[in-house]
Amino acid sequence: MAKLNSELMRGSLDLMLLTVLSGGKKYGYLLQQELRDASRGLIDIQAGTMYPLLHRLEADKLIRSSWDDSTGRRRKWYELTPTGRKRLSQQAREWHEYAECLKNMLSPVLEPVPRTA
């Protein structure tokens, strides 16, 4: 299912969820879809991975949840907390630096144009 190496993704899933949530309140299913769309289909996080992660982020007070019954269906919505927002911008910066650094390091290896599989 995972279109990117899941080992590579593991460390950054938190960050991805927080990023999508920075666009506003979402429930799990929607969050999953928007993450897929935002990554142009490359990142398809499994429900079985996402929900425990959301619960952990909530326990860490980076996001908070609320229930909404107004649509006739009991639904749990998640949104960023101020702490979550702070953590997101800090981690985004760290990841950006890390990615830049890795990109520079890898560029010599990538020079002889990667073969198409």
Binding site: Y27, G28, Y29, A47, Y51, H55, K76
Partner: peptide, 9 residues
């Protein structure tokens, strides 16, 4: 709560 959330999904 967990069951409700997952059922919705």
């Amino acid at each position: 709560e967990i069951a409700d959330e997952l059922r919705d999904h």
